[in-house]
């Protein structure tokens, strides 16, 4: 066989394979209100490209009517599946029924809806309580039997991540009487308030000498608090252990500098598990469970934070 024919056959086989597999998936994204969501969009597009899926992307700019219009367009185009990150929980019944009648499976990403579970194939998301629990268990292991006074930076008062991540952390440290949450205040998920609240914690706890660890409901608050700790003349990561949730690039930078200890990932890769479930469904009709929980992976200083930072900083966080 000459080189030319070999190349031709390869190309032909690849072309055939692609033709047999090329699926079209419509993705209705909420918008781009946070860095995390921007990263989710980037990763969904990446995952689709890797699997040779033709992704039709629609940005709803925080409006449900835009999402419903996008879904209707997807149904009219006869896509093979629909991914949607629903902006609100209610009002999806009729459009989901339309999709079901057209035999198009719908997968929910990172948020849930209040509709009948029969109307969608599955939902991919993270368990917020579990995230807090992973953080709590890490701290319990890190301090061992030493007595540890923890300060907590909560998310926005009353928001579900703030409530669930608090509950989860308390679950994680349950049974360790040596660990005690001594101060807990909201810092609204932001860097500047995180810094301000941490400053007052340091004042209130003997200049920080009485604080053994900081638990922040998201990384941004932790990044702000780390600066406050440094300005108080203490070493974050050593004098005060720092554990937070989300795994955004800037916390890996802090970890690489030895200023943060651990973070729990809220993965923006919701599309990966969704595409896996869809592939199985298309292949032989395997129906996935109604909720696919993503990994809440724990990253510590020993997980190459510098490398993680490089890998993540381009994702649009």
């Amino acid at each position: 066989m000459t080189l030319k024919t070999l190349m031709l056959t390869t190309v032909a086989t690849l072309g055939l394979a692609a033709a047999a597999q090329a699926q079209t998936v419509g993705f209705s994204q909420i918008g781009s209100e946070s860095g995390w969501r921007a990263a989710e969009t980037t990763l969904t597009k990446q995952q689709a490209q890797e699997r040779g899926i033709d992704l039709k992307f629609s940005d709803a700019q925080q409006k449900q009517e835009n999402q419903i219009a996008a879904l209707r367009t997807f149904i009219a185009q006869g896509v093979d599946a629909i991914l949607i990150a629903p902006v609100v929980a209610t009002g999806w019944d009729s459009i989901l029924e339309e999709a079901k009648e057209a035999d198009i499976p719908v997968v929910l990403l990172d948020r849930q809806v209040d509709s009948d579970k029969e109307l969608y194939l599955t939902a991919v998301g993270s368990d917020l309580v579990h995230e807090g629990e992973v953080a709590g268990k890490w701290l319990a292991e890190a301090v061992g039997d030493k007595s540890c006074r923890v300060v907590e930076l909560q998310g926005t008062t009353g928001s579900s991540p703030a409530i669930d991540r608090k509950t989860g952390f308390e679950k994680g440290i349950a049974g360790h009487a040596n660990i005690e949450i001594v101060r807990s205040q909201t810092a609204d998920f932001t860097r500047s308030i995180g810094k301000e609240v941490m400053e007052s914690f340091l004042q209130a706890e003997n200049g920080g000498a009485d604080i053994c660890a900081l638990y922040a409901h998201n990384d941004d608050m932790a990044v702000g608090a780390i600066q406050a700790i440094k300005e108080a003349g203490l070493k974050p990561g050593e004098d005060i252990l720092v554990v937070s949730i989300d795994a955004v690039p800037d916390i890996f930078k802090a970890m690489a500098d030895g200023e943060a200890n651990a973070t729990v990932e809220l993965t923006p890769n919701m599309a990966g598990p969704a595409f896996d479930a869809l592939a199985a469904y298309w292949k032989d009709g395997t129906v996935p469970p109604k909720f696919i929980q993503t990994d809440s992976a724990l990253y510590t200083m020993s997980d190459d934070p510098a490398g993680q930072y490089q890998a993540r900083k381009g994702l649009g966080y």
Partner: peptide, 14 residues
């Protein structure tokens, strides 16, 4: 001052 304080510009919250 707010930006210098947190060494970053947070357009959503500043």
């Amino acid at each position: 001052i707010a930006t210098a304080d947190i060494r970053g510009a947070d357009a959503n919250n500043a």
